[in-house]
Computed example of a mutant assay.
Amino acid sequence: MNTALWVMQGSLAAIFLSTGLIKLLQPADKVRQLVPAAFPMPFVRLLAGLEIVGSIGIIFPWLTGILPILTPLTALCMSIVLVGAMIVHSRQQEWSKLPFVGVLLVVSLVVVYSRYATLF
């Protein structure tokens, strides 16, 4: 089970890191193709930074053993972001994006539950 959790954590970290870097480093006009115009660009850049920090928080606290409680907490926070993404994609009627975001949400919640249960 530990190996499966590491695969899940690594996958989540890679996805959040890549999406965060895309939103942070791409020019605003390219980011606008990915994100609804209703969100101001500073908010999108802030969200990108949080995704990058989240990708680090899903891996390193558990890996180093320094404050390992941060791993399930980070996964929980990223789950909240994913719920928000599902709401936004639903309102924008981007139905094709919902299954992928839903899978990420389930994987993130599995990491939350499993890593938290391992601590106690």
Rank of each mutant, 00 (worst) to 15 (best):
P42G: 08
M41W: 14
G84E: 04
T118E: 15
Y113I: 14
V31H: 03
L47D: 04
Q92H: 03
A14T: 03
S18T: 14
G54K: 02
L21S: 12
V107P: 00
M78I: 05
L34F: 05
L98N: 01
Y113C: 09
T19Q: 11
A28T: 15
Y113R: 13
L24C: 11
A4Q: 10
S114C: 12
S79V: 03
I66P: 04
S90A: 11
A14N: 04
S90C: 05
V103M: 15
V44W: 01
I66G: 03
C77N: 06
G20R: 05
G49R: 10
L5W: 03
V7T: 11
I22Q: 11
K23A: 14
G65E: 09
T3H: 07
L34I: 08
V44T: 06
K97C: 08
R45D: 09
V106Q: 07
T71K: 00
L12T: 02
L109W: 10
L17S: 07
P36I: 09
A48M: 11
A48W: 02
S114F: 12
V101R: 00
D29K: 09
S18C: 08
Q92T: 04
N2C: 05
V7L: 12
R45W: 08
G54L: 04
S108G: 14
K30W: 13
F60P: 00
R115D: 04
G54N: 05
V101H: 01
L70F: 14
G20V: 08
I52L: 10
R115L: 08
L47G: 12
L119R: 12
V101Y: 01
F43C: 03
L98Y: 01
P68D: 06
S114D: 12
M1H: 14
V53W: 06
Q26D: 14
L82H: 00
S114G: 03
V31P: 04
F39P: 02
E51G: 01
I87K: 03
G102N: 07
Q92A: 09
A13K: 00
L105Y: 11
A28W: 12
I56G: 04
L50N: 07
K30P: 04
V101T: 15
R91P: 02
S90G: 14
I22Y: 15
Q9T: 08
E94C: 05
S79D: 05
W62C: 02
L24G: 06
V103G: 11
E51Q: 13
W62F: 03
A13V: 06
V88Y: 00
I56T: 09
G65Y: 07
K30F: 13
A13Q: 02
W95G: 01
K30R: 14
P27V: 09
V53Q: 05
L24S: 09
I22F: 15
H89A: 11
L109I: 09
V106C: 12
R45M: 06
G102A: 10
Q92D: 07
I69V: 15
I80V: 07
V83G: 02
M78A: 01
A48F: 06
P42M: 07
V106T: 11
P27I: 13
V110A: 15
Q9H: 06
P99Q: 15
G54A: 07
L46D: 09
L82V: 02
Q92P: 00
F43I: 09
L105V: 13
I56Q: 02
I69A: 14
M1W: 12
L25R: 14
E94V: 05
V7A: 14
L46R: 09
L17V: 08
S18F: 13
S11A: 10
